[in-house]
Every structure is written in C-alpha cells, then in structure tokens.
Design a protein around this nucleic acid. Sequence first.
DNA 1: GAGCACTGC
Length: 672
Amino acid sequence: MGDFDLSSSFIPSLHKPSSLLPTARHRESLLYLIETFPVTIVVGQTGSGKTTQIPQYLDQAGWCADGKIIAVTQPRRVAATTVATRVAEEMRCILGQEVGYSIRFEDLTSAATRIKFLTDGLLLREALIDPLLSRYSVIMVDEAHERSLSSDVLLGVLKKIRKRRPDLRVVVSSATLQAEDFLRFFVGDSADHGGTGSEIGGSVGRIISLEGRMYPVDIHYLEQPAEDYVERAVKTVFDIHSNEPDGDILMFLTGREEINTVIELIADRAGSLHAKAQSIMPLPLYAGLTTEQQIYVFEPSPENTRKVIVATNIAEASVTIDGIVYVIDCGYVKLRAYNPTTGIETLTATPVSKASATQRAGRAGRTKPGKCYRLYTEQAYTTLDEATIPEIQRSNLAPVILQLKALGIDNIARFDYPTPPPAELVIRALELLYSLSALDDYAKLTKPLGMRMAELAVEPMMAKVLLSASAFGCLSEMLSIAAMTSLQGAVWFYHDGSKETTESARRKFAVEEGDHLTLLNVYQAFVTKGKKEAKWCRDNYLNFKSMTRAVSIRNQLTRYLERFGVRIDDLSASKDVLRAGGPDKAEQIRRCLTTGFFAHAARMQPDGTFRTVSGGTALHAHPSSLMFNRKADWVVFHEVMETGNKTFIREVTKIEKGWLVEYAPDYYQVKR
DNA sequence: GAGCACTGC
C-alpha cells in the first residue's frame, strides 16, 4: 500500500454490559441537565449507549409519573423496533408493555407503555391529533444530525410546542459537528433568552458529550488523484487481500451499475489468485435488492474466504455489518435534489461531506482496529463540505407545507426550521398546493379537501386523485394504484442476464393505456391469482416484500377514506376489474388521474420524447415504462427525474388533451 | 434503445 499516505484518527466500540457503557458515568449529570433545562443536546458517538440508556434513566428518575410517556424518535423503522426490543430485554419486560414501539402499520404499545420508540414521521402525525404532544414528558430526537425532512420539521414543531409547554423536556442527540447549531436553534429568538453570557444555551439548554466506544481507524489517502475510481477500488481490494491480515472489506460506491461492474471485475481477477491463497467473495448491497439477495452480506465468511461487500450509501447508517476491518471509500454519493424552477428532481453523484466520510471510516472500527482507504487525496478531503446539505433545502416541500398547515401553522414564512429552506422551494410548493385547491386565495388550508389531503399518507397530487376517485366511480382501483405508486419503482426485481424474461413477465400485465393501469393489473393479480404468495411473485419477477407493502398501504388508505365518510365500492368479486364497471372504467381512471396530475402533463413529439405545455427539456419515457417504445399523444406522469444527462418520466398514462382544461381550467388558462 | 442513492407517513 506504498502509495497511500498514512495519517490516523481515532474513532471510538459496541456491545458492552450497560453498567460499563460511557453513558453510565454521566448518568447524574444527564439527569441534572434534563431536570434543569428544557433542552439538552447529547453528543454521543456510536457505542455510547445513549439511545438505550437515557430513556431508562429518565424512567427511573420519575419522568413517567402521572402516566406520562418518554418518546424516543428514530429516523428508520428497523431502528425503532430493534432498539425497543433491546431496551425491553434490559428492563426484563414484555415488548409492548412498559417498553413499546410504534411505526407505520405496527403499533406495539399499550396502556402500560412508559418508554415508546417511534419514527419521527409518526410522531409528527400524532401532532395532528394532539398538537401539544401532551402525552409525553420527554421527547428525545435521536440521530438528529442526519437532518432528515421529518426530524427537521419535528424540531421546528417542538420549538413551538415548548413555548406553550414549559414542562416538556426535549433531548436532541447529535454528532459533534452540529451540537452547537441545534442548541443555538432552540435558544434563538426564544422568549426566555437570558443566560449568563459564556454559555450559548442560557436558561434554555446545554450540551453534554458522551464518549463512544470504538477502535481506532487509520485513514489512508491517495497521493495522486485516481483517474478512474472504479478501477482503483478494485486494485485496492487486491492490495489489501495480498498484504493485510484477515478481515472483511466494505466498499462504498454510488449505485447499482457501478457495484455490478466492480463485482464482475473482482470475480474475474480473483480467478488468477494463487490456488492456495485465501479466496475472495464479492457481494453486492443496495436497497433495490430483495431481502433474499441481501442476507448473504450478514452471514459469516466461509472458511478461508474474505468477504468484500460492495455497497451504496445504505451501509453508511441504515445497515450495519459485523466483521468489517477495511473500508474503501470512493468519496461520492448519489444525492437527490429538487429544482424549484423546473419542478424536476435530479439524482446526481456528488462528493461526500466530511461528516459522511468520517461515518464511512467508522464502519471499519466496530470490532477491532481498522483501516480506511479513501480513493482521493488528503487535499481533496480538505475541500469537502463539513456536512451534507439538509433534505429540507433540496426537496419538493409540498408535503411539508401541507403538513405544517394541517398542524395549524399558517405563517409558513415565519416557521422556525433548524435551517430554513430557500424561498423558491416554499413558493413552488405553495403554488402547487393552491393549484390542487388544498389552499385557498389566502393560503389557508381548505376544508375538508386540504385537511384530508394532509392526512392521507401519499403525496399531494395522488391525495387529490384519491379524494376525487369516488366521483369517477373508481375509488377501489385508485386505492390500489396509489398503493402501487407509493412503492416508487420497487415493483419488479431485476436479475442480471435475464432481462428478456423480466420483460416478458412484465408484458403479461401490460395495459395499453399506460403504467398506472398496468400497476393496477399487477396488484389485482397478486391478491387474486397470486394469493399474496411469495412463490407467485418470484415466478412473475415481482418483489414480494414490495407487494406485501402495497397491500398494507392500500388498507391504511382505505381506513382513512372510510373515516372521511367516503364509500368504497366493493369490486373484489369481479375477475376482470378493469372492465367490470363497464367499458369505460379505464377511461374513468385516466380522467381521475388527470384531476391530480394535470401539472405533470406532457405531449409526445415526433422524435418520441415528451414536452410539457410550458416547453422545457425533452422528457424521455423511462425504460421501465410501457410508453418507452410506444406511440402516444398526451400523457400524465407520476414522477420526473434527471439522472445522468437524461430526464425521465416514470409511471406514464395516456390522457386526452381536453381533460386538462376540463379538470384544471385555472391552471391551463394561465399557462396559455 | 436502455435503467432509482436512501428514508418515512
């Protein structure tokens, strides 16, 4: 490894008896701070035990008296369930009793629950029913440094609630870098500013640091920039393999295509390894794989074999793999961003932030001292941003604004976010919500339409469609379509080398009018012919986990609509649902889609690409779409996304031009 | 003729 420049940094380890965890030494100070100040920022590295221990200390200290609950939010569903299980074990109680969790589709809590783990998105939903979150004495927002859309909004809402609930205690867990920012956020412009000067927190809050437990990780940089990091990554694998002791390798790349390339290259070159040498086993890991395809990375390496896990950013925080000693970091990540001028989302490979690079390196030091090879120079490292731009500054904010309005926060411009989004994003969101009639001329939430749209767990355009559907007599169908589009493309799975079979499997479900009706067909087949079985899915190249999820989503949406008093027409008895309601059922569905997706209308050009009414860039039907190689005139689409140099539309359905003016007269008069 | 990083309600 001669061409790597060696410098070191120490990143602290995991799974120790709880009495030995660093948090235990800080128990009294933690409890004192939380008792004394409304806001406590906890800087706790991996292995500090903050997530599992702090709620137990709080419970023991009496924060659950009078039936109050301690809430701990997590950014991901798995985190909420696994941490709750662990704490229930430590407290020797049955999960769902004193300790429980609540995530979408699963509520394992009871009247006895004192400590509740939940996703941050779900706690925000609870605020719709209980605006002051009055059931909770303490709310701990874990992993706030990840800056997810919902944790940022939650922090803003908690800051507001705090003013009306002096008894509420907020605990924010953060990485070092952002701790002061979070504290300043809670202090800023606050009624009880005050304080003694030197402390930023004043009377509002304090920061407490808990050391983590990890092994040191040596960081190695390239001396010269790599011309091709894919090639360089493969070389590094073999350098490690021939020169370094046992231990598995985790490699960070940006996406599926790159991962497959690297896996092939490693497999090719592994053939020329010494016959007696330890063998090498490359394994892919990215979200698009099915559960069965993912489990291999978690199994211990076979005898005399070194695993090389080639992963996307999924391995940075969402998924933890034991036995990793070496990390190879390409220095890039694919990030989504929303352009408020064009309304187009981009997905682009971007240099990682320093915080991200540190997190990736830390994956090497969980079980013993490790090494991290960065495929860039130390000079390049110094130019990286400190932290990734928060989602709230690069997302379509229509769902966020709708949610805030539903929480009674009318003055969107003055809402206090941890970092405010650009005004253009807010304006674009307000315009869209107005065009969908979710907001009135005074930007007030309309009732019941806007309020119901906020309550439905689908994006505003689809929410509008669902709420129009019974008038078109296609509510049952639209519920299935909404559930299927919520899967965001994860309907089919892709198997290398079997493209043709995948295509022919898909063709079986194809419906001339477009992708939405095709998705409906798939859903119907899964619940009838397929009997909701995994085997049927495999035979048809469908992702079983996704299909099961679609059933749950559909059930949940159905319950919401029933609560709104909308009658669900039952068509479950008919075999051919599309034609069951008469020959124009498909047309009703397409008309209904237009009532929500009129702003996503486009017309096919002679060259086969699409243009919106306002012109703009050429839109290509995504290769996964039925419209990829078919003729069409006017269409509506679910989503538009730019990847590489092309802009793709996904989930495309044929409509009539006249419907646009019929269902969105204001929108289309202005445009022409 | 060619493909979606990752979460969440």
